[in-house]
C-alpha cells in the first residue's frame, strides 16, 4: 500500500512538469521503474546532485552550480556585448545557436502591472549597474515580441538612454518559413527590415 502511494506521489509530481500531464507522467514513471538500473537510480542521483548544487548566478541570473556562472566567469566572454533575455531557457536557446559570444543578463520575466511584476521584481537595477561597471558597449534586447516583452524593451532602452548602443533582434521571415503562412504584422516587420542582397 505504502509503495503504491509512493509511486502515486511520484506520478503526481511528474505530472506537474511542463509538457507532461497525468497520462504521460504515468507512462514516464512506469518506464523509469522498468529501467530502474539504467534510468531511475542515476536520474534520482542526478536530481539530488542538482538539488544540492544548483543556484542562480549572482551576476546575470543564469542557472549554474556556482555563485558566478561559467559565462560570467570567462574573460573570453567579456566582449562588451550584453544580451538581455527574459529567462534562462532563452539564454540556453541563444547558447545552442553559438552565434553570440558575449555575456547575458537574465531578467527573470517581463514588466507586467497586471501580474504585479515591476522593475524591482526583475533584475533591471542590477542590469544598470552592470552596464556601468563591466565596460558594456552594446546592449542587445533579445526579448519576446509580445506586448509585455516590448514594454520591457522600451523601458530598458529608456533607462539606458544614450550611455550605450542599444539593439534588438530582427523580426521577420523565419528561416525555412513561407510568406503565405505569415501574419500581416510579421510580413510588415520583414518589409521594414529588408536588406540588400
Amino acid at each position: 500500500m505504502s509503495s503504491t502511494s509512493d509511486i502515486d506521489s511520484l506520478i503526481e509530481l511528474m505530472a506537474r512538469l511542463p509538457g507532461l500531464g497525468p497520462r504521460s507522467a504515468r507512462r514516464a514513471v512506469l518506464h523509469l521503474i522498468r529501467k530502474r538500473g539504467q534510468l531511475l537510480t542515476p536520474l534520482a542521483g542526478a536530481m539530488q546532485q542538482v538539488a544540492d548544487t544548483a543556484r542562480e548566478c549572482l551576476n546575470c541570473g543564469n542557472v549554474g552550480t556556482s555563485d558566478i556562472c561559467d559565462i560570467c566567469d570567462s574573460e573570453k566572454r567579456a566582449t562588451g556585448e550584453l544580451c538581455i533575455v527574459e529567462d534562462v531557457a532563452d539564454l540556453w536557446a541563444m547558447e545552442r545557436s553559438q552565434v553570440f559570444r558575449g555575456r547575458y543578463h537574465v531578467l527573470g520575466g517581463t514588466l507586467s502591472a497586471l501580474d504585479a511584476v515591476g522593475p524591482e521584481e526583475l533584475r533591471i537595477p542590477r542590469l544598470l549597474d552592470r552596464v556601468e561597471t563591466e565596460g558594456i558597449t552594446e546592449v542587445i534586447l533579445a526579448l519576446n515580441a509580445t506586448v509585455d516583452g516590448m514594454t520591457t524593451a522600451h523601458y530598458i532602452a529608456d533607462q539606458l538612454g544614450e550611455r550605450v548602443r542599444i539593439t534588438s533582434l530582427a523580426q521577420g521571415v523565419p528561416i525555412g518559413g513561407e510568406l503565405d503562412y505569415l501574419d500581416d504584422g510579421t510580413i510588415s516587420a520583414a518589409m521594414r527590415a529588408r536588406k540588400a542582397l
Binding site: 514588466l111 502591472a113 515591476g118 522593475p119 516590448m150 514594454t151 524593451a153 522600451h154 523601458y155 533607462q159
Partner: peptide, 14 residues
Amino acid sequence: MVRDPHWYMALERQ
C-alpha cells in the same frame, strides 16, 4: 498610482 514615468512611456509608446 504608480509614478514611474519610464514605465508609462514604454506602455504609451505601444
